[in-house]
Every structure is written in C-alpha cells, then in structure tokens.
C-alpha cells in the first residue's frame, strides 16, 4: 500500500505525462499510465477522491483499475490487429499482382536463349547459387516429392542457361537426396526440353553428406569425361548443425588420441573442413517462399551470402531467379568497411 500512496504523492507534484515516463516498474506501470490518463482528464479531481478513500476501497479500486486497463489495452490491440489486417490484405493482393506482372515480364518459356539475354545485361553473376526449396502438400498442384523434383530441375535449367557452374539445392527433409535417381532423370528430361535431346549439357549431382557424385544420368562408374556444365549439390538439414557437431566430435577424438593439439584448431581449419564436408559458401541464396526462413541451412555457409525472396510468393518461378541475379549484380560487399 505504501508504494501506492507514495506514487500518488509523486503524481501530484509531477505533470501527468512525466509520471508515465517514469512509470516503468512492473505491474504499476500500467496502473500509472491510467492514473495519468485520468489525472489529465479530470485534472486533480480524482486525486482528492482517492486520497480520501480508506484502504479497502483502494485495493478494490486498484484491482478494478488494472482490470479496466487490461481490457482497454486488449481493445486497442484488437483495433490494431484489425487495421493491420486490412493493410495486410491489401498488401497481399498487391504483392500477388506484382508477382503476376513479373511473371509476364520475365517468361523464359523453356528457351535458354531468353535467359541468356536477361543475364548478359548483368555486370556480375554469382559463382555459386543456392536455393531453398519447400515441399508442398500432395493435395496442392505441384506438391509432393514429384513437384519438388520438378521445381528443382527447373532451377537447374535456369542456372545452366545463365552460365552458373555451381548450384546448391537445399530442402529441409532431404527429399531430393532420397530420390536422387528419379531426380537425375527429371533433370535430364527438363534439360532436353530446354536444349533439345541432342545437346543436353553434362551435369553432375553431388551429395556431400554421403560423399557421392553422379555424372549425368548414367551410373557413376563411367569415369570418361568429367567436364560438366553444372554441378548440383543436394543439401538438407543434416548438412547444417549436425555436420558441425560431427566435425567437433572428430576433432575431439583426434585431440584425445593426441593427434591434434587444441591450439591447432583454428578458424581456418574449421572453415577448410566444413568446405570439404559441405561445400563453399554460396554467393546468392534464393528462397521461393512468402517470407524468409532459413530452415536450418548450414549456418557456417551464409556469412556473406546475398539473400533474395519475393514477399507473398509461394511458387518456384523464374522472376524470383532473375530478380535475385539482378540484385546480386548491383550489390557491393565490403567486409568490415
């Protein structure tokens, strides 16, 4: 009770707004805000009334007040939600329309020449490109693992056409990795659609985690010509934190067997090992979802990666790809400066 009275006394000396500014302690803060509100409305009248009341009355009023306050804030919150909701609805429609427009402007229509044309205008292109893919539910159009592979192979075609040599495809659950044989066929089919059956570019699919590499769609035993137009790495959640844990364990074992000193473990050693285990850091990361969620993408590998996604977009579309490249072409990286 003492605190309450002393607060009341303070309010009488200070202007109401100032007491709001000071009012930052615990549950009293809300109370004081309302007190100040009432105070400013009735300018001092309520003060007199309060100080006259006995103690029981005060506790009663205190409870009532905090209840009222709580409801006031709730009402305010609902209003805010409503206003924001309306705004969000408009924004959503606007973004959808923007994406539709972009789809009309940037339409590759399965021709590498058109993509080439878009890309040659750019000042620089990334050496390594990464994309996060999400599997949609089977009931959706283009959902399920089939849809995911279709999306993946589409990106492969764009990347080859753009002249980028390395592509990282990431999906959280590793669906692409599990269906790598089907995926290779899918890539072949898509590439033949783009380049014609007689000119299918050579490609390699790598699964760093299993340390496997597949060339074209034949079985990997053939070691003839390994010059490829594109190398595709398939990553999943497994290659992120878990790989870092694995590396730590290995180093701990080496330390225990005195093969490695603790002092020998340096940033560059860890970096070297992780590049070896997962691959180098991509320059540009594309995300084909409504708002960026990295979903466990290898944390070591996104240090300076440029991120690109289109708000409220749910599909793997060419306009995200090309606009990502355009953004990358204009960005300037200056580490630390």
């Amino acid at each position: 009770m003492g605190t309450f009275e002393s607060k009341g006394a303070m309010r009488r000396t200070a202007p109401p707004e100032a007491s709001v500014m000071n009012g930052t302690e615990g549950k009293y803060s809300k109370l004081k805000a309302l007190q100040a509100l009432i105070g400013s409305l009735f300018s001092g009248k309520s003060d007199a009334g309060e100080s006259l009341g006995n103690e029981e009355n005060k506790t009663f009023w205190k409870k009532q007040k905090s209840k009222i306050q709580y409801s006031i804030y709730k009402v305010l919150l609902v209003t805010l939600y409503l206003v924001y909701g309306c705004y969000r609805y408009c924004q959503y429609e606007w973004n959808k329309m923007k994406i539709r427009m972009l789809n009309i402007i940037y339409n590759p229509s399965n021709t590498p020449q058109l993509i080439r044309q878009d890309v040659t205008k750019l000042e620089k292109i990334p050496k390594r490109l990464a994309a996060i893919l999400e599997m949609k539910s089977e009931s959706h159009v283009g959902g399920g693992s089939q849809g995911l592979m279709n999306d993946g192979s589409e990106i492969v075609c764009w990347t080859v056409s753009a002249g980028i040599k390395h592509l990282v495809l990431y999906d959280y659950d590793g669906v692409l990795k599990k269906n790598v044989q089907d995926f290779r066929k899918d890539i072949r089919n898509k590439l033949s659609k783009y380049f014609g059956t007689s000119h299918i570019p050579k490609y390699a699919v790598r699964i760093p985690h299993l340390n496997k590499i597949y060339f074209n769609d034949k079985d990997s035993s053939s070691t003839e010509n390994h010059k490829v137009a594109i190398e595709i790495s398939l990553l999943s959640n497994r290659d992120g934190r878990e790989t870092i844990v694995d590396l730590t364990r290995t180093m701990a074992d080496l330390c225990a067997s005195k093969e490695l000193k603790l002092g020998d473990i340096t940033m560059s050693l860890v970096d070297k090992e992780l590049v070896h285990l997962v691959g180098p850091e991509p320059d540009l990361l594309l995300y084909f979802g409504p708002c960026l969620d990295l979903q466990g993408f290898p944390p070591w590998h996104i240090r300076l990666t440029e991120l690109h996604w289109e708000e409220d977009n749910h599909d793997v579309i060419y306009s995200v790809f090309i606009r990502g490249l355009q953004k990358y072409a204009t960005c300037k990286i200056n580490v630390g400066k």
Binding site: Y172, G240, R241, C291, L292, D293, L294, Q295, G296, F297, P298, P299, W300, I302, R303, L304, T305, E306, L307, H308, K327, C331, I333
Partner: peptide, 20 residues
Amino acid sequence: GVTRLSDFMLWQVSNKGVVI
C-alpha cells in the same frame, strides 16, 4: 536495405522459424 547477415548470429538465425 542490405540483404545479408554479415556474419551475425549465423547459428541462431539459420534455425527454422526465425523471422528476418
């Protein structure tokens, strides 16, 4: 307006569900 993490909280941000 820069769309990079610039080496900030990499481990934490890559977690699923973090809003950027």
